[in-house]
Design a protein around this nucleic acid. Structure first.
Lengths: 211, 211
DNA sequence: AAGTGTGAACAAGTTCACAGCC
DNA sequence: GGCTGTGAACTTGTTCACACTT
């Protein structure tokens, strides 16, 4: 498998995969890049080029087998295995994440929840007991996880991320408004709705001023 | 103000702004593109080029006045006014959003909450009464909002978004896993953690296979 | 006839490097 | 001496257009 595939391409694959899953469920057997593109707001050429990084999955004159392509993407994205996830920070947001049904269905098993607050530690959330964050480090040694979701207060984000990374966690999804630093071999994504809103207001302001 | 500024640039401004706010709070008065870049993991040249789309805010040999630059960015991004926001869908996620303290502090006023469930409608969340989504349309006519945050079940996302857009809402933040379509003059952003995880597993898989 | 896969052309975005100013 | 602002060089990413396959 070639090693130099642009990150933008990787980021689009889950989008393609999502649509293919839906088509699969609807019983569609074949689909063209044209149709995928229309549905997703992406040019057909882009989809074909993206997929061509990984192989020749289509048939000229026909299109792509929905099942075959979904399968290939599952393999490429590593969705043919289950991934172990831990959520640190069980405030309102952490609780919403912990009970979000979309993770389990896609191969992500939330195996543990952590919080620092004594009033939360020991309570049950969606059938899982909230553990004390002070035991995070040693727990990870016994039961490693692949992905850490961080939903703690911003001020302790870096500290929690460091603990996760030092214990071998390779991917971090940071829901905190604070940016954190990790080694370059660790995958890191930030989800910060305020930044999204702030770039939207740029456009809103211009619309309001009648362009 | 020139009209052709790349979207990637706009998306980085809130990041710069966030850091400047912090520096402002710390009492720093001057900062160089070098320092901003190190802190944010962006090249200094990029920061200078980005800012140069909007004006000449720095002083050669010195750097940028923290206060002045923060002020300029506030104006550019439209953060010098308050924005009216409504949240539709008050499940666990909607509730987490509705009580997220980061919005109000940044000029976003959540003025109303909507849900379809009779058991939720009429209850109080963070001092706001949850209204019935069936009155969304007429409410918007009386009290327009700028931004709609959508946290309903995926199946009704498009329907809710249509209602919002038809009533004049210009920006949508979609927390639903379903992609939705809007007119090109409406700002739209999607937040879907599963897509993030799925692109991270691509890299995890390769790391696991020892590259 | 329809639709893929892909080199080549093009567009967009980033970094360099340096003149100019403080 | 230090640091900005910016054309120009470069790099990355996207789209075109067509040979090729079914």
């Amino acid at each position: 498998m070639p090693i130099d595939i642009p990150d933008v391409v990787i980021d689009r694959l889950p989008l393609y995969y999502r649509l293919l899953e839906r088509l699969e469920a609807e019983g569609r057997s074949v689909v063209s890049s044209q149709e995928l593109g229309t549905e997703l707001g992406v040019t057909p050429a882009q989809i074909r080029k993206d997929l061509s990084y990984f192989g020749r999955f289509g048939k000229q004159g026909r299109g792509y087998s929905v099942h075959r392509l979904a399968d290939e993407l599952r393999q490429i994205l590593g969705l043919d295995t289950r991934w172990r996830v831990t959520v640190v920070g069980i405030g309102r947001l952490g609780r919403a994440i912990a009970s979000y049904p979309g993770f389990e269905g896609q191969g992500f098993d939330i195996i543990a929840l952590y919080d620092a607050s004594p009033s939360l530690v020991g309570t049950e959330i969606e059938g899982r007991t909230v553990r004390d964050v002070s035991s995070l480090r040693e727990d990870l040694e016994r039961e490693p996880v692949d992905i850490g979701i961080v939903a703690v207060p911003g001020e302790v984000a870096q500290e929690v991320v460091d603990t996760l990374v030092n214990a071998g966690v390779q991917a971090i999804l940071n829901y905190t408004p604070n940016r954190v630093q990790v080694r370059t071999d660790v995958e890191l994504k930030h989800i910060n709705p305020v930044l999204f809103l702030q770039s939207m207001t740029y456009h809103l302001k211009r619309q309001r001023d009648e362009r």
